[in-house]
Simulated assay, not measured.
Amino acid sequence: MGLVGGMLVAAGLLLLSIFNPPAFGAVRGFFSEITTPVASAFTWVRTSVAGVPEGVSSYVNVRGENARLKKQIADNELLVERARTLNQENRHLREMLKLHDVSTDAVVVARLVASSMGSTRRYATLNAGGWQGVKAGQPVRQPDGLIGQVVETSPNTARVLLIVDPESIVPVRRTRDGLPAIATGRGDGLLDIRSASVATMIFQPGDTFVTSGTGGIFSPNIPVARVIRTSRDIAVAQPSANPDALDFALVQATFLPDPTPTPSPKPSPSAKPKAGKK
């Protein structure tokens, strides 16, 4: 019945198109209005379904490219940081070599390979020792200021007592008037400055201190510290050379060499007694 009905409708439309073209045009427009949205919907669905694999592929490619670019940025940042660190080390080394060239008492420029920062005892280790001329008692410094003093040596290493250690004592003088003082470590990265005389010394924030040369160990005029706050007759000072950013250091000979021991006189040979006459 459906096939016969369809054939009758088709025949009717054929006759209508032959004998009454305007009416056939109206019927055709009516059916177009009905079928066009349906056809458009099917076309959109077909196009969307066909574009799904391409969209998924594009998403995967974009995500992979994004991950690759992030990794490249991270690698570039690491390279930039390494370049900055290397440039800073090279700058410090050039400053140390320049200081070595102008110093008349320089022993060796060495790298500080270890430092005790986690306790109140503050030591550092140099990668130079007795074979490079380093001896116990010698001062260690940077261009910015004094670092400490060698306390132990081995053939290729040396242990340095930093000036911020509580056992460190450095004779200093104030630069603006030359008044003598003593700088001792606090164990917390700072220094205490005390008067070296019985008279009370008035300290002021900003006062700077350098080595005085007293004691014959440290050469005069090496920067040591700057006062940051005061408390009665004691001032708290910041070291001129930052102990937490040490890389290279210059070992110097002691300011006054050890006195040459006076040789003891050799005993004169005693005279042999003459043989008596028989």
Results as ranks from 00 to 15, higher is better:
residue 2 G to L: 11
residue 4 V to E: 15
residue 6 G to Q: 11
residue 7 M to S: 11
residue 9 V to F: 04
residue 10 A to I: 07
residue 12 G to T: 06
residue 13 L to F: 13
residue 13 L to V: 13
residue 13 L to S: 13
residue 14 L to S: 15
residue 14 L to T: 15
residue 18 I to R: 08
residue 22 P to Q: 12
residue 25 G to I: 12
residue 27 V to R: 09
residue 31 F to P: 02
residue 32 S to D: 09
residue 33 E to R: 05
residue 33 E to W: 03
residue 34 I to A: 05
residue 43 T to S: 07
residue 44 W to Y: 10
residue 54 E to R: 06
residue 55 G to R: 06
residue 58 S to E: 08
residue 63 R to K: 14
residue 65 E to F: 11
residue 65 E to N: 10
residue 68 R to I: 07
residue 68 R to F: 10
residue 69 L to N: 09
residue 74 A to Y: 04
residue 75 D to P: 06
residue 82 R to G: 11
residue 88 Q to P: 12
residue 90 N to W: 03
residue 91 R to I: 08
residue 95 E to G: 08
residue 100 H to C: 11
residue 101 D to W: 07
residue 102 V to E: 09
residue 102 V to L: 04
residue 103 S to K: 01
residue 103 S to Y: 03
residue 105 D to A: 15
residue 105 D to M: 11
residue 109 V to A: 01
residue 110 A to I: 04
residue 111 R to W: 00
residue 112 L to C: 15
residue 117 M to Q: 05
residue 121 R to D: 12
residue 123 Y to H: 03
residue 124 A to I: 10
residue 124 A to Q: 04
residue 124 A to S: 15
residue 125 T to V: 14
residue 134 V to H: 00
residue 140 V to S: 00
residue 142 Q to M: 07
residue 143 P to L: 04
residue 143 P to W: 04
residue 144 D to C: 05
residue 147 I to V: 15
residue 148 G to W: 01
residue 149 Q to L: 08
residue 149 Q to D: 04
residue 149 Q to T: 06
residue 152 E to D: 06
residue 154 S to P: 01
residue 156 N to K: 05
residue 157 T to K: 09
residue 157 T to Q: 08
residue 158 A to Q: 08
residue 161 L to A: 02
residue 161 L to G: 03
residue 162 L to K: 07
residue 162 L to H: 02
residue 164 V to I: 13
residue 168 S to R: 00
residue 169 I to D: 13
residue 170 V to N: 04
residue 170 V to A: 06
residue 173 R to K: 15
residue 176 R to K: 12
residue 179 L to Q: 08
residue 180 P to F: 01
residue 181 A to V: 10
residue 185 G to K: 01
residue 191 L to T: 05
residue 200 T to E: 08
residue 201 M to W: 04
residue 203 F to Y: 13
residue 204 Q to F: 02
residue 205 P to W: 03
residue 207 D to S: 07
residue 212 S to D: 14
residue 214 T to A: 12
residue 218 F to P: 11
residue 220 P to Q: 04
residue 220 P to T: 03
residue 223 P to F: 02
residue 227 V to S: 07
residue 231 S to N: 09
residue 231 S to K: 08
residue 233 D to K: 02
residue 237 A to S: 02
residue 244 D to P: 01
residue 245 A to W: 00
residue 250 L to I: 06
residue 251 V to W: 00
residue 254 T to P: 02
residue 254 T to F: 01
residue 255 F to V: 06
residue 260 T to V: 15
residue 261 P to W: 14
residue 262 T to A: 05
residue 265 P to L: 09
residue 268 S to W: 06
residue 273 P to D: 14
